[in-house]
């Protein structure tokens, strides 16, 4: 009897001591915290086969939508840190939502693996708008407090934070109204109709409609719009002057450093693969690789910096 018990114990103990050697032994689950078909979902579905190839194993994508990504992050936090379940969290899932909602995860819940994408955000208005520059906007808002409305795809979303960074940084946010929508599509329709005047998102949006960019939240001007000033140039001071929609892979806290390194290297190889590079070029995704250590430092700095933004947004 005792013999059996010991054998059983030994068997049970086996999976707990995850060996870095031979990793991965089974398929890796890449969790998308949003619905199938969205931007993040597409990115991961294009990424998964190259990740699998780089690891010499298998990788599959699963969707766990809800609560602006917090349902998936809440489910993954506290799971066994064996490297077989990784979440792709964006700036909002990882650094904003845990500071505005009561969610079962925080800054210390993760082992950051690698960052994949980062696009600077841009504040837009409609192309036929009377505002040519951000200075025009500030003057108009001051002349007519309470008249102008900025939209967003939802409270706490990157679209919301972009507008907050702009108008709070310029000191006019209290003279404006915020109108959240359920997703970017309805918000952009409202801007075309004139219900809202301003909307912030990544430069990707420029291609899809008649918009006029007013200010970019990047350290320098963007190649695609050389005439548009940076936030610093128009007088928006740190930490509100730079804002990126970034995303990367996270595992639960406490992962084996060797497995983290293996995954991080595989992530880099997958990002450099021809197939994924072509996907990024086709979708104008700005790739931005950071290894595990750099990503960890970046993520923690962003968590801090965004608390200022959250306070300014009144969330």
């Amino acid at each position: 009897m005792l013999k059996y018990s010991i054998a059983a114990l030994a068997l049970a103990a086996c999976p707990a001591t995850v060996s870095a050697e031979g990793f991965p032994e089974r398929p890796i689950n890449l969790v998308v915290p949003f619905n199938a078909g969205g931007g993040t979902d597409l990115l991961l579905r294009a990424f998964a086969p190259h990740m699998a190839e780089a690891l010499g194993g298998n990788a599959f994508v699963s969707n766990m939508a809800g609560g602006s990504g917090t349902i998936a992050a809440g489910a993954l936090a506290g799971q066994k840190p064996d490297g077989y379940q990784l979440g792709y969290w964006s700036v909002t899932v990882a650094t904003v939502q845990p500071q505005i909602k009561d969610v079962p995860y925080g800054v210390d819940s993760w082992t950051p693996i690698c960052s994949v994408a980062a696009s600077p955000t841009v504040l837009f208005t409609q192309a036929d708008s009377p505002f040519q520059t951000i200075e025009d906007v500030v003057a108009a808002v001051k002349a007519d407090p309470g008249k102008y409305i900025y939209g967003s795809s939802g409270p706490g979303a990157i679209t919301h934070l972009t507008a907050v960074a702009a108008f709070s940084g310029l000191g006019v946010i209290d003279d404006m109204k915020h109108l959240p929508f359920q997703g970017s599509g309805p918000a952009l329709q409202a801007m075309a109709a004139g219900t809202i005047q301003f909307f912030g998102d990544t430069e990707l949006l420029m291609a899809s409609g008649d918009f006029r960019p007013l200010v970019v939240f990047n350290s320098e001007r963007l190649e695609s719009m050389p005439d548009v000033p940076t936030a610093t140039e128009v007088g928006i001071s740190a930490p509100l002057n730079e804002l990126y929609l970034w995303g990367g892979f996270f595992g639960p806290a406490g992962m084996d450093p060797e497995i983290t390194a293996t995954l991080s290297k595989a992530c880099e190889a997958a990002m450099n693969s021809d197939g994924f590079q072509k996907f990024a070029a086709d979708t104008s995704t700005v790739l931005d690789y950071r290894n595990a250590a750099d990503f960890d430092a970046f993520f923690r700095a962003q968590y801090e910096a965004n608390s200022t933004l959250i306070e300014a947004a009144g969330l």
Binding site: A36, G37, G38, G185, P186, L188, Q189, A192, S208, G209
Partner: peptide
């Protein structure tokens, strides 16, 4: 006509 999807399916 506008290039703006009204729901998740048209976004796909």
């Amino acid at each position: 006509a506008l290039g703006i999807p009204g729901d998740a399916i048209t976004a796909v």
